[in-house]
């Protein structure tokens, strides 16, 4: 586990989907992870949408710190990853300037986020494989910006894949604003649905035919599914690569 400097409390963050009972693997053959720059807007919107659909999902940010808009462009509110909770940010901004921060949507966003999980987490500090409530790994990582996708692929190369486990890293390019995040979240849910459907089909085929392996995992179908998805969502340019944890 190179590249991990800061210890974070394992299991300190709740995955909302798993809180409402047993999520059997049969229902959800794929586990997801959403990633954006600050783990605030796009990745959290997608986190919410996916977990409302009961998908096992976690989320991260790839930036060096959590940056939120401030009173002017040169005065952003900066918080550190893995420590400041959404709730603390919410209360701090509310006390600073309730009008400004409710007008620009920050308070609403933070309020949503604090009901999803405790604090923003940094991708680079994620100890892949360490159990978090239920699971320590995911099958699909969905980033929301090309820069983040680059960072994830690059980071996985640097980690030297201690788990030897394949992972699909998909980028869905979403502009960083509230409206686009909602559209992007819907797109991501659709992608998750399509991938999951393909995975179930492959699994079912494996069960029925039983004998010889004939594309019995979803991996081989990702390019085709992604292309189909891209035709449905032409305004969310996609990128994809198979990497390893």
């Amino acid at each position: 586990m190179a590249a991990v400097q800061e210890p974070i409390q394992p299991g300190a963050t709740a995955v909302s989907s798993s809180s409402d009972g047993l999520v059997t693997e049969e229902d959800f053959p794929l586990k997801f992870c959403t990633v954006c720059a600050s783990n605030q807007n796009r990745s959290m919107e997608a986190h919410l949408i996916l977990s409302l659909a009961k998908y096992p999902v976690i989320s991260f940010g790839t930036g060096s710190a959590v940056r939120l808009p401030g009173p002017s462009i040169d005065k952003p509110n900066i918080y550190s990853f893995n420590s400041t909770t959404y709730d603390e940010m919410y209360r701090e901004l509310k006390s600073k300037d309730p009008r400004l921060y409710s007008a620009n949507g920050l308070l609403g966003m933070l309020d949503r986020n604090r009901h999803i999980k405790a604090r923003p987490e940094r991708w680079q500090d994620w100890k892949v494989g360490v159990p978090r409530l239920n699971e320590g790994v995911v099958d699909v990582v969905i980033t929301c910006e090309e820069r983040c996708w680059d960072a994830v692929i690059d980071d996985l190369m640097n980690r030297n894949s201690p788990l030897n486990r394949p992972v699909h890293v998909i980028n869905v390019d979403i502009k960083d604003n509230h409206e686009e995040a909602i559209v992007g979240g819907r797109g991501i849910l659709d992608l998750a649905n399509m991938l999951t459907r393909a995975a179930k089909e492959e699994r079912k085929r494996a069960k029925e035919e039983g004998r010889k392996f004939e594309r019995e995992s979803v991996d081989g179908r990702v390019p085709e599914v992604l292309a189909m998805w891209q035709e449905k969502w032409p305004n969310l340019p996609a990128l994809w690569s198979v990497s390893y944890f």
Binding site: W149, A227, Q230
Partner: peptide
């Protein structure tokens, strides 16, 4: 030049690029 072909070419190019940059 289907969507899939185009998309896959871009994905492979980008992966090479990140590898070389790394």
């Amino acid at each position: 030049l289907t969507t899939q072909n185009r998309l896959m070419m871009l994905c492979m190019e980008k992966t090479v690029r990140i590898l070389l940059m790394n």
